[in-house]
Write a protein that binds this DNA or RNA. Structure first.
Length: 420
DNA sequence: TCTGGGGTCCTAGGACCC
DNA sequence: TCTGGGGTCCTAGGACCC
């Protein structure tokens, strides 16, 4: 029974979150970036997707287009870098390996965050949080913040405060002390409360996390959603979101890109979409899935008045994983939504309704997912890790991608390993 | 002039059925 | 002119997350 748990058996968990992760990764391999404002740019060097503390202090916002703050670069000596996702992915893996030393139960929540269960551990939690931080820094060079509490939502709050107040690690276990903090946290800072909900709540006079915690259940359920009610319960210290084990696989996989220069030619767009489906299919096979729904979408610039956006879906009841057939399908789907004369700025392929690839479908009409030869071919392709270029996807990439400020792939490519 | 990418979940509304 | 009610499934779109 939930309410018979003694306080000793209450759930305890930590949220470990890397500080300014992408910027920190770059600093590990280039010490000259330390103590300087660093900004990492999105694909095509379009906008800011990571900022060091110094860059945030200059007022550069998350997602803000480069051209809007370009004039600050020379003025403040901002170090501007193209995103190097291969490096960040590898550094993330290293950080997670270190965290596994601290708990057998860990949920990797995103590239730079993980929840650790600290249940039934006979430890000094305050001290443990600081040890985690020190150990990760010592092993990887990445600074992290640690928040420890009874629920994921409260651990998020603790982490936010630890980062904000430069505490390194913070435990929120006592309800009275926790409430004092909640009273000074705007609702929008809470996990699960975004711009829309916080604006609506503000209109109702609910301005801070403590007020939301004390709001009546029925009122929250009626005007917001079950998700928000869960958030409210978690603010009260009642866990509604369990730690998920690492076995969970994705329900959809996508590869989408914006183009540095607009694409109008159908053949060129077709080549791009073909390369997207090849990349998405590779990610999908890596988690052992096959797709029953394939979606292709295309868009012109949404910042122009003649904005055009469309998508088409195709269904494969048996679950497809064979790249050449997926490419043939996406070609057909693109044909249904391509409009001549449009300057396309973005396109993508989403593989959805994923099913396990290893379960044979027995439906007489569904057909077989792969034959032996096809499965072997895909296995070889996947081992080559993206170095395969499928026929239709040749050509197009050089003209659309822009990454002028990328640092080398220090940890994942032998040719680019750091020389000392 | 120039504006990311990859996910999850919920909800409302329409189609359809009995 | 009168003209049921309820369930399920699907889809598009919104909100939110990092």
């Amino acid at each position: 029974m939930l309410f018979e748990l003694s306080s000793r058996d209450q759930s305890t968990l930590a949220l470990v979150d890397c500080n300014n992760f992408y910027a920190s990764c770059e600093r590990v391999f280039n010490p000259k970036l330390r103590n300087k404002p660093v900004v990492v740019l999105s694909n095509n060097d379009g906008c800011a997707i990571a900022r060091s503390r110094e860059a945030k202090a200059l007022g550069i916002a998350m997602g803000q287009p480069f051209f809007e703050w370009e004039k600050l670069v020379a003025l403040h000596g901002i170090q501007v870098l193209s995103a190097n996702f291969a490096l960040y992915g590898d550094m993330s893996r290293r950080v997670m390996e270190v965290l596994k030393e601290f708990s057998p139960e860990i949920e990797i929540y995103s590239i730079d965050e993980a929840f650790l269960s600290l249940d039934r551990m006979d430890i000094d939690l305050e001290e443990y949080g600081h040890r985690i931080k020190q150990r990760v820094y010592q092993c990887t060079g990445i600074p992290v913040s640690v928040g420890i509490s009874r629920t994921k939502t409260l651990a998020k709050v603790a982490n936010h405060l630890a980062k904000d107040k430069s505490l390194g690690s913070l435990c929120l276990l006592d309800e009275t002390a926790t409430d004092r903090w909640l009273a000074v946290i705007p609702t929008q800072e809470l996990w699960g409360i975004g711009r829309k909900k916080s604006a609506w709540l503000a209109g109702q006079g609910v301005l801070n996390a403590l007020q939301l915690k004390n709001a009546p259940d029925a009122w929250v359920r009626e005007h917001l959603s079950v998700m928000t009610l869960r958030t409210v319960y978690e603010l009260r210290g009642i866990p509604c979101q369990a730690l998920e084990d690492g076995a969970s696989s994705k329900k959809s996989v996508a590869t989408t890109r914006s183009f540095a220069e607009a694409v109008t030619d159908k053949g060129e767009l077709g080549s791009l979409v073909a390369s997207f489906v090849a990349m998405a299919a590779e990610k999908m096979r890596a988690q052992g899935s096959a797709a029953r729904v394939i979606q292709v979408f295309v868009q012109s610039s949404p910042f122009r008045s003649d904005y055009y956006s469309n998508s088409a879906v195709g269904k494969v009841p048996y679950g497809e994983g064979y790249t050449p057939r997926l490419m043939a399908m996406t070609r057909g789907l693109l044909g249904r939504i391509f409009r001549p004369g449009v300057a396309y700025k973005r396109a993508g392929v989403i593989l959805m309704d994923l099913v396990r690839a290893d379960i044979e479908v027995s439906d007489l009409f569904a057909g077989r997912r792969y034959n032996e030869r096809e499965a072997r071919l895909m296995a070889v392709v996947d081992r080559l890790e993206g170095d395969v270029c499928w026929g239709p996807e040749l050509l197009a990439w050089g003209t659309v991608g822009r990454q002028e400020k990328r640092t080398p792939k220090f940890t994942t490519r032998w040719q680019e390993v750091l020389r000392v």
